[in-house]
């Protein structure tokens, strides 16, 4: 080290969290979605948004059309996003458990979050209850204690920021599509 120095920034490894949210348009004909990237302090870094039409045809089974629309939307968002989060969080009520097991394969830790409600989770999801009643459903195994994802999660929880960015994401979606 040519120049001795100490990095005084918080030791969160620079890990980023991606918050996925989906909002149905009026009449259910389309879905709006966004991927909001924040750091461990909840500071905004990247906001990617898009929308998709939901096919309204008898050829689709009920629910399937929405699931595939969401998958398409997620693919678009992931494609456009230039950041690589250490952790992706989504709302259990908005994301079908099979989305990330059958339609989209994600290479980073991903979990669906439920706020104190009973949620059906897939067999390959690992549930993890938090002290405040929130439930996490990890796709596959939950991240290890010394992993970036775990440290990031702990930092967000400690700052009461685990769920809050979801609210900002919804506001961002509204602003992006309806704001003027």
């Amino acid at each position: 080290m040519a120049i001795p120095f100490r990095d005084l920034r918080p030791d969160d490894g620079g890990a980023l969290a991606g918050y996925l949210r989906f909002v149905d348009e009026d009449g259910g004909r389309g879905i709006r979605g966004a991927l909001f990237i924040v750091n461990a302090r909840g500071e905004p870094l990247d906001f990617t948004f898009s929308r998709v039409d939901v096919p309204a045809s008898f050829l689709w089974r009920a629910g399937e059309a929405r699931r595939h629309a969401v998958a398409s939307l997620v693919a678009s968002l992931f494609h456009a996003c230039a950041q690589t989060p250490a952790l992706i969080l989504s709302m259990a009520a908005e994301v079908h458990p099979r989305l990330f097991s059958e339609d989209i394969r994600v290479e980073v830790p991903l979990c669906r979050i439920a706020e104190g409600v009973a949620v059906v989770h897939a067999a390959d999801e690992s549930p993890e209850p938090l002290a405040d009643g929130t439930h996490l459903f990890w796709l596959g195994a939950s991240p290890l204690a010394d992993s970036n994802a775990r440290r990031l999660l702990d930092a967000l929880v400690a700052r009461h920021l685990l769920l809050e960015p979801f609210e900002r994401t919804v506001k961002g979606i509204a602003e992006a599509f309806d704001g003027s």
Binding site: G33, I37, E43, P44, L45, D46, F47, T48, F49, S50, R51, V52, D53, V54, P55, S57, L59, W60, A65, H68, A69, S72, L73, A75, S76, L77, H79, A80, C81, A82, Q83, A176
Partner: peptide
């Protein structure tokens, strides 16, 4: 667009919905 989509669905396999190319706003980091 809705009209074209409907027509395609009638004669072909159900088309997978396609999202609009995403827009992205990010901070400079």
């Amino acid at each position: 667009r809705a009209e074209r989509t409907t027509r395609r669905l009638l004669w072909m396999r159900p088309s997978r919905p396609r999202a609009e190319p995403a827009l992205r706003i990010r901070a400079a980091v």
